[in-house]
Simulated assay, not measured.
Amino acid sequence: MDIKFKDFEGPLDLLLHLVSKYEVDIYDVPLVEVIEQYLAYIATLQAMKLEIAGEYMVMASQLMLIKSRKLLPKMVEEISYEDDLEADLLSQIEEYKRFKALGQELAAQHDQRAKFYSKPKTELISDEMELKYDKTVVDLFLAFSKVMADKQDSFNDSHTTVAADQYRIEDMMAYVEERFSQKKRLTLSELFEASQNTAEMLTIFLASLELIKRQYLTVHQEENFGEITLMKEVA
């Protein structure tokens, strides 16, 4: 099974996506929370052995530096190096937002103008799976990244579990279906609460995506960054 996630145009595009979820001015967002979500996203991609462009890793190292400096106690009351880094990052995101909006406006004008000219027939192919309730795979993936990051400490503390060499998506689809035969609604946290290692979580996640694609499950989220709830589709 080949499941593709939405590709961001770069690390600033991913950061802008995370920042925009707060629906406040860029300079008012809780930067540490945004950084943690970015790092969790990258860590999950790595765990899934998906290819990550080098620019994402460079940004990750910069964000880790900003986060570490922001968490240190203030020793002097003056503009520090960390403030310069933070201000520069927010400025980059704001500038990227302006250029992206301009690009979208130009693209809209191009589409409008194209209506007046004939052009060869093109095949429309979309790799992005749209979920119900105006949610996308990205929203589900970000929520999963948070759940996996929260469980990582418990995995590290466990020394008794031996991970299986391989988990099959087909087997995990049957497992998820069994869970929903007992209960019609489950949050992501509940779905993964019995998972013993990262590999098992990843396979259950991919199995859940396939069941969503087949419309066996639907997805609901009350608010941005809120808990994701999976529900069995009523026949």
Score class of each variant (00 low, 15 high):
residue 48 M to C: 14
residue 6 K to D: 00
residue 130 E to I: 06
residue 31 L to W: 05
residue 73 P to Y: 09
residue 34 V to A: 00
residue 55 E to I: 14
residue 57 M to A: 15
residue 205 F to D: 03
residue 73 P to R: 06
residue 229 T to E: 10
residue 62 Q to S: 15
residue 181 S to P: 00
residue 92 Q to I: 03
residue 116 F to D: 02
residue 182 Q to K: 10
residue 185 R to T: 10
residue 149 A to T: 00
residue 139 D to W: 00
residue 160 T to D: 04
residue 78 E to W: 06
residue 22 Y to W: 04
residue 81 Y to N: 04
residue 104 Q to N: 13
residue 151 K to I: 07
residue 192 F to L: 12
residue 190 E to H: 10
residue 205 F to R: 04
residue 222 E to T: 12
residue 65 L to E: 15
residue 101 A to Q: 10
residue 196 Q to N: 06
residue 109 Q to S: 04
residue 28 D to K: 10
residue 215 Q to I: 14
residue 164 A to G: 03
residue 5 F to Q: 02
residue 175 Y to P: 04
residue 75 M to K: 02
residue 141 F to G: 00
residue 202 L to F: 08
residue 192 F to N: 09
residue 135 K to Y: 00
residue 11 P to K: 11
residue 145 S to H: 00
residue 84 D to T: 13
residue 113 R to G: 01
residue 202 L to N: 15
residue 172 M to Q: 13
residue 107 A to G: 13
residue 191 L to K: 07
residue 133 Y to M: 06
residue 104 Q to C: 06
residue 6 K to L: 01
residue 231 M to K: 10
residue 148 M to K: 04
residue 61 S to Y: 15
residue 206 L to I: 14
residue 44 T to F: 02
residue 34 V to H: 00
residue 151 K to L: 10
residue 131 L to V: 02
residue 114 A to L: 04
residue 211 L to K: 08
residue 91 S to H: 05
residue 11 P to E: 15
residue 226 G to I: 00
residue 78 E to L: 07
residue 67 K to A: 06
residue 227 E to M: 00
residue 124 L to N: 05
residue 63 L to C: 11
residue 129 M to P: 01
residue 104 Q to V: 04
residue 52 I to Y: 12
residue 219 V to T: 06
residue 235 A to H: 08
residue 175 Y to W: 11
residue 144 F to S: 01
residue 24 V to F: 02
residue 223 E to Q: 05
residue 53 A to E: 09
residue 98 R to M: 05
residue 117 Y to R: 11
residue 230 L to A: 05
residue 41 Y to S: 00
residue 107 A to V: 07
residue 32 V to M: 02
residue 55 E to F: 13
residue 208 S to N: 11
residue 212 I to F: 05
residue 171 D to W: 03
residue 217 L to I: 10
residue 151 K to H: 08
residue 187 T to K: 05
residue 138 V to D: 01
residue 198 T to Y: 11
residue 142 L to W: 01
residue 167 Y to K: 04
residue 102 L to P: 09
residue 187 T to W: 04
residue 110 H to D: 05
residue 91 S to W: 02
residue 22 Y to A: 02
residue 168 R to W: 06
residue 166 Q to G: 10
residue 117 Y to L: 10
residue 102 L to W: 08
residue 176 V to A: 13
residue 88 D to S: 15
residue 74 K to F: 03
residue 162 V to C: 10
residue 171 D to C: 05
residue 163 A to H: 07
residue 118 S to E: 08
residue 122 T to I: 05
residue 148 M to R: 02
residue 61 S to T: 14
residue 73 P to F: 13
residue 78 E to F: 14
